[in-house]
C-alpha cells in the first residue's frame, strides 16, 4: 500500500509540475539539451563542463540527452522540429550544423532557417591519429601506406567534420581512404586501438585522454598552429598540406524563432559558464579555443559561410552527395 501511496504522490507532483499555462516566465521546468552524438564525445563533455554554471544562471536544470546517428543530423532534426519554447536546445558542431546541408541528398532540415544559434563555445582542430602499436609514425608513412592500399579512417559519423577532412586530405594527397563511420568519439577511438580501423580523423577533444594515456599516437592536427597542450604534434599545414586547415566549431542552438529574451538569457548563461575558471580550464583541455568577434548578431552569417566553405570543398574534390 505504501508503494501505491508513494506512486500517487509521484503522479500528483508530476501533474503539478507540468506547465499548464505557457511560459509566463521562462524557464519553469528543466531544459532538455540534445547531444547528437554518443555520450563522452567533445560536444557532450563541453556540456558537462558548462552545466553547473548555466543551471545557476538560468535557475533550472539541464538534462543532456544523447540522440546519436547519421553524423549528428538525427538529433539535430529532433530540435529543428521541437516547439520554440526554449525547453529543447541543441549542442551542435560544424557537421550537423553546416556539412549536413551540402552532403545529404535530402537534408532533414535547413541549417540556416530551422535553427536559432545561441552561443559559440569555439573551435577545435581535427586530430589525425593511429594506434600506438601501428608502424605508422608520421603523415608521410600514412600517405605511403595509403598509396600501396586504401587505408580506413574512423570518426564520429557520415557528414562529421572528420569525415570531410579525411576526404579533403585524400584528394590533396592523391590517395584513397575508406570512411568507416561511428556514432561517437569513444567508439571510433576503440576501433583504432583494436586495430580494426587504420586511422582516426576526429575532433581532438574527446581523444585527449587517449593521447595522454598513450593508447593512440597523434600524427597531425588540422589547426593553423600546433595545439597548445600537444606541441609535439605537427600541423598538416606545416607538413605540406596548406589547404587542409580545418576547425570543428561547437555551438548551442535552438529551434527557429526562439523569443528574443530566451536567446539573450541562454547566451548570457553560457557566456558566464565560459568565464568560470574551472569550466574554462576544462574546455581549454579539450582543445576548444574561443574565437573573438563572434556574437549573437553574426552566428547565423557564420553558419552560412561555413556551408559555403564545405560546399566548395565538396565540389572541388568531387565528393558525392549521399
Amino acid at each position: 500500500m505504501r508503494f501505491a501511496i508513494r506512486s500517487l504522490l509521484v503522479a500528483l507532483s508530476c501533474t503539478l509540475a507540468a506547465p499548464v499555462f505557457a511560459q509566463a516566465k521562462w524557464p519553469e521546468r528543466p531544459i532538455r539539451v540534445i547531444n547528437p552524438f554518443t555520450p563522452g564525445g567533445t560536444s557532450d563533455l563541453l556540456m558537462r563542463l558548462s552545466t553547473e554554471r548555466v543551471e545557476k544562471a538560468l535557475g533550472t536544470q539541464l538534462v543532456i540527452e544523447s540522440r546519436p546517428g547519421a553524423g549528428g543530423s538525427i538529433g539535430s532534426a529532433v530540435v529543428a522540429q521541437a516547439p520554440a519554447d526554449g525547453y529543447t536546445l541543441l549542442v551542435t558542431t560544424t557537421g550537423p550544423a553546416a556539412i549536413a546541408q551540402v552532403l545529404f541528398e535530402k537534408p532533414p532540415y535547413d541549417v540556416v532557417k530551422d535553427f536559432t544559434y545561441l552561443y559559440m563555445f569555439g573551435g577545435a582542430p581535427i586530430l589525425v591519429a593511429v594506434s600506438a602499436k601501428s608502424p605508422i609514425k608520421t603523415i608521410q608513412d600514412f600517405v605511403a601506406a595509403a598509396k600501396k592500399s586504401p587505408q580506413t579512417f574512423a570518426n564520429s559519423g557520415t557528414g562529421s567534420v572528420g569525415h570531410l577532412t579525411g576526404a579533403l586530405f585524400a584528394g590533396e594527397a592523391g590517395v584513397r581512404l575508406t570512411h568507416v563511420p561511428f556514432k561517437g568519439a569513444p567508439e571510433a577511438q576503440a576501433s583504432i586501438v583494436s586495430g580494426e580501423v587504420a586511422s582516426l580523423w576526429n575532433t581532438l577533444g574527446a581523444h585527449v585522454g587517449g593521447l595522454k594515456g598513450g593508447e593512440i599516437r597523434g600524427i597531425a592536427v588540422t589547426s593553423q598552429d600546433r595545439a597548445p597542450q600537444f606541441p609535439e604534434i605537427p600541423t598538416l599545414r606545416e607538413l605540406g598540406f596548406p589547404d587542409v586547415v580545418v576547425t570543428n566549431w561547437f555551438l548551442i542552438a535552438g529551434p527557429a524563432n526562439l523569443p528574443q529574451d530566451i536567446v539573450l538569457r541562454v547566451n548570457e548563461a553560457f557566456t558566464a559558464a565560459g568565464k568560470d575558471p574551472k569550466a574554462a580550464a576544462g574546455i581549454a583541455a579539450l582543445g576548444v579555443q574561443p574565437i573573438p568577434g563572434l556574437n549573437l548578431k553574426n552566428y547565423t552569417d557564420f553558419i552560412r559561410k561555413e556551408v559555403a566553405v564545405w560546399g566548395k570543398v565538396m565540389k572541388e574534390h568531387g565528393i558525392k552527395r549521399q
Binding site: 563542463l49 553547473e52 585527449v208 585522454g209 593508447e215 574551472k278 569550466a279 576544462g282 583541455a285 579539450l286
Partner: peptide
C-alpha cells in the same frame, strides 16, 4: 574534467 583530471589510462 571539471576538477582538471583527464580520464585516461
Amino acid at each position: 574534467m571539471i576538477h582538471g583530471i583527464v580520464p585516461s589510462s
